[in-house]
Design a protein around this nucleic acid. Structure first.
Lengths: 348, 348
DNA sequence: ATGAAAGCGCTAACAA
DNA sequence: TTGTTAGCGCTTTCAT
């Protein structure tokens, strides 16, 4: 627990601190010096103080991923993708869980410089304050999601519009005509864009009636509650499909329908968004549109690292294409009893 | 993006850097100085460099939680609990995902000093090297799990023995006599202790025969694979219960059994460990033993903060008691169609 | 190849 | 109340 500094190592090795530093960092030094320093460092259990090193170097070799909702598997998926990219670079990744907007603002603004060399953020809500913080962030920021161009940062986004279109077209193609959109909070980025996408998609479909219900969170519990409201309320029996804004809500809806004795998909079809593992493993499997979370994470990390290498490179905005995974919650008999392994193959 | 230092702020405000620092940190300063400094800092968009601050202070005000397997919801649950405690303190929490043992060793050893003031680690595998690293960690470490006493650190552990006993007793009480234990890798801490627990528990039960199968990971896919092996292999038809080592494996087993046309729980009962949300939302619900993940996380964070406040306090080892949640995967009709909300009430 | 010394940005004595 | 200054541990010129 006692802190041993480079001075201790230098003394022990009988050389100067400069030589010690050089030996430790693989710079010019005689074999003899390197040997002595290595030995001394090992004996003392020396580990360089990353704070001092960062201060001197002006960089931390550390990147952050700020997640708003770590309880949602889709963010874990993104995180893993980011991590793979970062691990292959010379940076380390730290995860910062930022429940509310304020936490994200604080992170971007006050923690930027010195804490990390750059960060990827996937904010749930985008306030003016957040945009301002991003615009004057002391380190490069890559945003996973939508942010005004004035923020002036690299951005990776999903194509929610096309995604919702895929879902709606699929349901309509299966003969569904009365769709309920079960959304999360509409003041969030996903909530807003998925709603817009849904509306545009149904506007293009003839003879389709819709109803919309919003719940307070993108969670299973809220999805359950919202679906119950829908299925027991005045539209009960009048809808033949529930389009959930994400998989968590979709799973909740699945259970609500099941608990009410409705047959899925005969009585009601249910779909989700994100194609998380939850959608794959629910019974019936939840039809879901993959918005390319892993791909988005990967690209975001690459954009960040590229900008760190070349700060003045032009801004990039990458949009990742969605794809639909049809399962038993929307189509009778659809790969209902397929194994995880073969589902994976099928998606390749 | 241009870095503005405290010197810039001092110049702008027309006072010394010392006064600037004091004004910014709420120490003695005249109202007038505070006002000038505030204004200057705001105009320049100044944010203190945490690296320099940490170097000077000798601490980072930052804690780390090192997770081995962030894909497992139980660790997310622990993380949330840790975060709640940390958020209420003056520290910040950073998450570090450490896939393999080496990453954990590196984190504990070389990153300790300067990176964070202390860390909570939940290693999946405990090697001699890790124990050595923990023992000479430059900052306080709290281990979630089992570690030799020689590591000399505060520890929070689950009572796997009692947990497995609860599961086995329940199954035997329901008339099950031929139990299969579907374990994860036995070279991991959970793998080993849950196996030990299972063996001790069945040793106490009369007339019970057992079989054990180990899979390569604590994942749904591996659980599915292992269960298939079990249910299609030579013990097929000879077992009436699968005791999975965690919920992920249990969910995989649930689906494997379902895909083979077995009725759950009539033909086969299935149980998990950890009582994650997955167990609550699967159909049928997965009977699972809650090893107190949230509680363990909470206690670990509190132990760490307490040690930071009082470095010489005696070592603590806290064991959290398990409890069983019975669901439809092991008992016919058990709260099968209960809602999430009422399940929560029931667990209170 | 090596050592002396400057200095990264900040805070805390210490003096005034 | 304020300013001057030392110094946290490290890396990196600049001499030698």
């Amino acid at each position: 627990m006692a802190r041993v500094t480079i001075i201790d190592v230098a003394k022990r090795a009988g050389v100067s601190v400069a030589s010690t530093s050089r030996a430790l960092n693989g710079l010019v030094a005689s074999a003899e010096t390197i040997e002595k320093v290595r030995a001394a460092a090992a004996e003392l259990g020396y580990a360089a103080d990353v704070t001092a090193r960062s201060l001197k170097l002006g960089r931390t070799q550390q990147l952050a991923y700020a997640v708003a909702d770590i309880g949602n598997p889709v963010y874990v998926e993104m995180m893993s993708a980011i991590e793979r990219v970062v691990a292959a670079s010379d940076y380390r990744l730290v995860i910062s869980s930022t429940g509310d907007v304020q936490a994200t603002v604080d992170l971007v603004h006050s923690l930027g410089r010195g804490f990390v060399d750059g960060m990827v953020i996937s904010p749930l809500r985008v306030t003016d304050e957040l945009v301002a913080a991003i615009a004057q962030a002391p380190v490069p920021v890559v945003v996973l999601g939508r942010v005004p161009e004035s923020a002036g940062v690299d951005t990776v986004r999903a194509d929610s519009g096309r995604g919702m279109e895929l879902v709606v077209d699929h349901l309509v193609g299966e003969g569904r005509r009365r769709l309920a959109f079960l959304n999360g909070p509409v003041d969030t980025t996903p909530g807003r864009f998925r709603q817009d996408g849904f509306r545009r998609a149904v506007a293009d479909a003839a003879g389709v009636s819709t109803v919309e219900v919003g719940v307070d969170d993108f969670t299973i519990a809220e999805g359950y509650r919202g679906a119950l409201e829908l299925l027991e309320g005045k539209v009960a029996g009048e809808i033949d499909a529930i389009v959930a804004a994400n998989d968590l809500i979709g799973i909740g809806a699945l259970h609500a329908a099941d608990d009410l004795g409705l047959r899925i998909p005969e009585d009601i079809a249910i779909t989700g968004v994100d194609d998380t593992e939850l959608a794959q493993v629910s019974r019936p499997g939840l039809t879901s549109v993959d918005l390319g979370a892993a791909e988005r994470g990967r690209v975001a990390a690459e954009l960040l690292i590229a900008r760190l290498a070349e700060p003045e490179r032009p801004l990039h905005t990458v949009t990742v294409a969605p794809s639909l995974r049809v399962r038993g919650s929307s189509v009778l008999g659809a790969i209902r009893s397929v194994t995880l392994a073969s589902e994976r193959e099928a998606s390749a």
